[in-house]
């Protein structure tokens, strides 16, 4: 009845771990995990865009976008967009550097990316302070703050991940062979960046 051969203790001595798992896909687990997480995040943004869609398009008596008396700082946000897009390139540079074993490039790239991300976030906050309306001022205000705020939260998370990568980069971690710790925050950062372009286009430009 028992198909099981009693557990043979094959590894005596030092080895305490499990047998290494069989790798059944070419994608590595952390990278796949990050992509799935991003899929989930895209859907979270999707729900906010759905709210936007209903408030702006479906609602029969929507008062225009932005409604009279409201102004969105298209130009400042445009500059901010440029900053964020640039930071994606520095991020890419950081990753390429470590792949070639260039630690200084890695460090510089990460620090630059961090700095630009912070600039973006601070500008966003200043914009909030100056924009002249609050989340509680009509559904337009709610959606505006909802989407930009959600994105801001993602920039914050991205910055946290980048800080971790930077700390480790300065502590001498990562190598041309092992750089998941840079690659994965990088993927997330590119996502945050692309998402901003969509948010910017729908909220400010359209």
């Amino acid at each position: 009845m028992t198909a099981h051969a009693p557990a043979v203790d094959v590894h005596h001595g030092e080895h305490h771990g499990p047998p290494p798992a069989h790798q059944s896909s070419r994608v590595s687990a952390p990278v796949l995990g990050m992509f799935l997480f991003i899929a989930s995040e895209v859907m979270l943004f999707g729900s906010f865009f759905t709210a936007y869609f209903f408030v702006r398009v479906v609602n029969p008596d929507a008062p225009g976008w932005p409604p009279e008396g409201f102004h969105v700082p298209v130009f400042v946000a445009g500059v901010n967009t440029a900053i964020l897009v640039t930071s994606s390139f520095t991020m890419h540079w950081a990753l390429q550097s470590i792949k070639r074993g260039n630690r200084a490039g890695l460090q510089a790239g990460l620090v630059l990316t961090l700095a630009m991300g912070l600039t973006f976030l601070l500008t966003q906050m200043l914009e909030y302070a100056r924009v002249g309306f609050a989340p509680r001022d009509t559904a337009f205000g709610s959606v505006f703050y909802g989407l930009t705020g959600l994105h801001g939260a993602h920039v914050f998370v991205g910055l946290t991940l980048l800080t971790v990568a930077t700390v480790r980069a300065f502590r001498g971690h990562f190598s041309p062979e092992h750089h998941h710790g840079v690659e994965i925050p990088g993927i997330y950062w590119h996502f945050v960046d692309v998402m901003w372009i969509v948010v910017y286009a729908t909220i400010y430009l359209l």
Binding site: S40, E41, M43, L44, G46, S47, F48, T50, A51, F54, V55, V58, N59, D61, A62, P63, P67, P135, R136, D137, T138, A139, F140, G141, S142, V143, Y145, G146
Partner: peptide, 29 residues
């Protein structure tokens, strides 16, 4: 699942922050 997270965020913001996602006379739907 992110969609239910979104829906609950909106409902919560409407209550805590006074947003107007679902307030009809403020343009909500």
């Amino acid at each position: 699942t992110p969609f239910i997270a979104g829906s609950q965020f909106f409902a919560m913001f409407d209550r805590v922050l006074g947003t107007d996602f679902f307030t009809p006379d403020q343009g909500g739907y």
